[in-house]
Amino acid sequence: MSSTVLSLSNVSKRYGDFTAVNRINLSIPKGSVYGFLGPNGAGKTTTIRMILDIIRPDEGEIEVLGCKSAMQVRDRIGYLPEEKGLYKKMKVWAIISYFATLKGIHRKDAKLRAFELLEQYGLKDFANSTVESLSKGMGQKVQVLSSIAHNPELVILDEPFSGLDPVNQEVLEQLIRDLKNNGQTVIFSTHIMQHAERLCERLLLITQGSKVFDGTVDEARAIIPRRVILECQNDVMALADLEGVLSVSETFVGGEGRIPGTRQWELYVKEHTNPQLILQHCFQNGISLSRFDFTQTSLHDVFVHLVGQEAREHNFR
């Protein structure tokens, strides 16, 4: 049965003249893995804080697990904040167990659960170490575990992958898949599109506080036309007349080692266009290609396409 675990309607948050979040609408079905994407300062963390009722929205309604405030269902939510921190002097198992007890788990069960999780995710040997003796990445894993120790229905992870090495990123991806397989709903924000691509069923893309996209990964990919890159000595403007080709333009790339006279062309094609047609046309017209590049549109391209300009402007402001 698919029901909604979280819904936001027309949620806004302002700090003085600055609008951090602007009229966001959102609905997240139970059991899904949902990605929050957006450039730095887009309003992801503010949105997450409002969902958790750490800060209150100026406008709009939020409903979490059927309640008006996350505080009412706080024992059913797990949260990993963007900026990670733990009590330095506490032992690893104790800190996981402490956060679980705060979420209503009995002390004995919390301790058992802490050891179980540490074993499951390869940290058993560190159970009795103090947090200050751990590396940054290790500490982050501990914090992730402490946010899920009470088996929450809704897990919100703010930038869970930042600071982790590739191996640990894989461990964390597995953890998110495990949560999903358990029927738990996961929301995570990230900058790294590959993670979102691999894990998410649905995405929210926000920039400057406003939603620019909300949908499945395939829907996101469909936003920008597919692209074919050609390199040859000829002019291929005529390809524009081919069925399914949206546009043809020449891109100028320099660089040493290129054969003199080589020109690069960028073709945008409709989503279901067969690239073989283009290849065939070139062959028939005696166009000798030195490069034919047809790639799947990546989420990265979508991200850059949708927020690239604004993000760049934001960063240099």
Binding site: I77, K88, S146
Partner: peptide, 17 residues
């Protein structure tokens, strides 16, 4: 101040008022 500077506070505030 430790909780604030370590940002533990945010996790705590998701669990307690």
């Amino acid at each position: 101040i430790e909780e604030k500077s370590n940002r533990i506070i945010e996790v705590l505030l998701a669990s307690v008022t």
